[in-house]
Amino acid sequence: MMSYSAFLTEYGPRFLDGATVTAIQTVLAAILAIVIALVAGLMRLSANVVPRWVATTYIEIFRGTSLLVQLYWIFFVLPLFGITLEKFTAGFVAVGMNLGAYGAELVRGAILSVPRGQWEAAIALNMTGAQRMRRIILPQAMVIMLPPWGNLLIELLKGTALVSLIAVADLMFEAKQINGTTFLSAQAFGTALIIYYAMARFVITPAMRGLERRMRRRLSRA
């Protein structure tokens, strides 16, 4: 049997390639999720029923079904409607749209938890609705929602593993391929598990903590 160090020497570069694809998928999906979350979260709070209804429908559909179902639907069914996404794109779009729906609820909740007095003070200073939101409410809502966004981004990282099922060559995909040729399942899947864990624990979590500290300092809530 091959030693683990020999295994790593042989397959390390492929794990690295896969991890790079996973990282890129994660970043692109995260950007999409953040944009969708902001837009849908704000639409949910609109005084007008039309945007409110559109956002609610979007959120309920994406939170009410599985990411895997959405991914397959986007990749296999959407082309029948004339929208063909290349597998790499379909991957991060599905993940981003799914997590964006969860993020929208975080955005909405955080905005609603900014104290009423802040809205009233902004009205008393005669700010427009857009100014109130952008300059007064959102900066405060941001600090409130950062901790749950940290968890959401880890869910997002985990979600990207599903793109391997439509043959995007991410970390999960490489692990499966290596397992298929070597039958060293513990090594192949175990190494991938450790890499995912390291990305969550030593990249995403500290980055979010750091961002949180910086935001909090800017809010100067000692």
């Binding site: 007095g117 900066p139 800017r218 809010l219």
Partner: peptide
């Protein structure tokens, strides 16, 4: 019209950021 009026609140409502 609101430009004519200013208000101070019981809980100040200063912008913390």
């Amino acid at each position: 019209m609101r430009a004519n009026i200013g208000m101070c609140f019981q809980h100040f409502n200063l912008f913390p950021h």
